[in-house]
Design a protein around this nucleic acid. Structure first.
Lengths: 192, 192
DNA sequence: GTCAACTTTGACACGGCTGTCAAGGACAGG
DNA sequence: CCTGTCCTTGACAGCCGTGTCAAAGTTGAC
């Protein structure tokens, strides 16, 4: 029962992501992580150090994946469709799969109270997202009802709101309705 | 050191509100509540029963206050100004005073994981808010760029997003900028 | 085969939180 | 004054979480 490492680090980080997503950072214990990943608590401490390290590794992985998916969706030549595709990804991200909830929003809500480092990481993700959105809005030009900077911030804020509403109602369809209203507002179809 | 109740229940609920707001439900312990209110832990158990009861009393008080303030702001005959006033209240609610953060959003983010009862209470508040907003949007008529129902949901979602962004950046001015963009979008000034 | 390096595992000490309780003090009504 | 009722206080048992560590086992290299 020893020698070389017995567990798959990726699998552990995957399990950790699910837990952090559902319960947040503070409410997730090393024992939770151990149970969910099938790895002994001691082994986790040995391999990662402590919970904060597990989190940082988990979140870096998540962030990369999320931003890549967002960039791909926003690359659509039709900016309206790009935004809709991005928002659909955001919704799928928090409602599909066995574990619901948006990881970054869950963490953001814990604020600086819980762990300043966690909050910093979330800020990095949201800043990155805002940049992607601003680029897309710039490309959209006049089709977008707001200047690129304002539009980007508004979209970021709106997606955070979606994540909270998911927690409250757990209804993906309802979120899609809000998305449709929002997109219609930001990219009005011109009565040319 | 006994006889009649030694502490002011309102003061305890006020202290509890600050703690729940800053730390959420799960992360706030009876010991925290005791320290913040200056009342012994045992006395709190004696007077309220348990943490859930303290919370329910605290939140009912908060909800009444918040909805009353929202209704007053939205009563403005100019719907655009009413919405702006309401959003300003929402921002003040989460950035003014010694403790920052939005109570209902903080609680909502904990979702059903923490305590189903807590989530229910938040839903009641948000549903109440949505109704107020829908009435206001109905009164606004064509001035509002969306049908009343959609507008109301969008505003609720947006305010939740604002609360999350407050946690991340802690910058009230930034929130006001987003509000200005949002109001401009929902109540466009017509180039009559 | 031997050895060093590494991993796993269970155990430990420590501290925090919960919910309960008994002892004791204070107040109001009779 | 007396008595019943209520409140406060400190203490307790039980559970959970953390971080560390020594013992023991496995692997790969020489």
């Amino acid at each position: 029962m020893a020698g070389r490492r017995q567990f798959d680090e990726e699998a552990v980080l995957g399990a950790a992501e699910g837990l952090f997503r559902a319960q947040g950072y503070g409410a997730t214990s090393m024992l939770d992580l151990a149970r969910a990943s099938g790895v002994q608590r001691g082994s986790l401490y040995h391999a990662f150090g402590d919970k904060e390290q597990v989190f940082l590794r988990t979140f870096a992985r998540y962030r990369e994946r999320f931003l890549a998916a967002a960039a791909e969706a926003l690359a659509d030549p039709d900016p309206r469709r790009g935004l809709a595709a991005f928002l659909e990804i955001a919704i799928a991200n928090m409602t599909a799969g066995p574990v619901r909830g948006c990881l970054s929003t869950r963490l953001a809500s814990e604020g600086t109270q819980g762990n300043a480092r966690v909050c910093d990481e979330v800020r990095v993700l949201l800043d990155g997202l805002e940049r992607l959105l601003e680029e897309a809005a710039t490309r959209a030009g006049a089709a977008c009802a707001l200047p690129p900077g304002e539009a980007a911030r508004l979209v970021v804020t709106f997606t955070r709101g979606l994540a909270v509403m998911e927690r409250v109602h757990g209804d993906a369809e309802r979120l899609r309705e809000s998305v449709a209203s929002f997109v219609a507002l930001l990219f009005p179809r011109r009565p040319s």
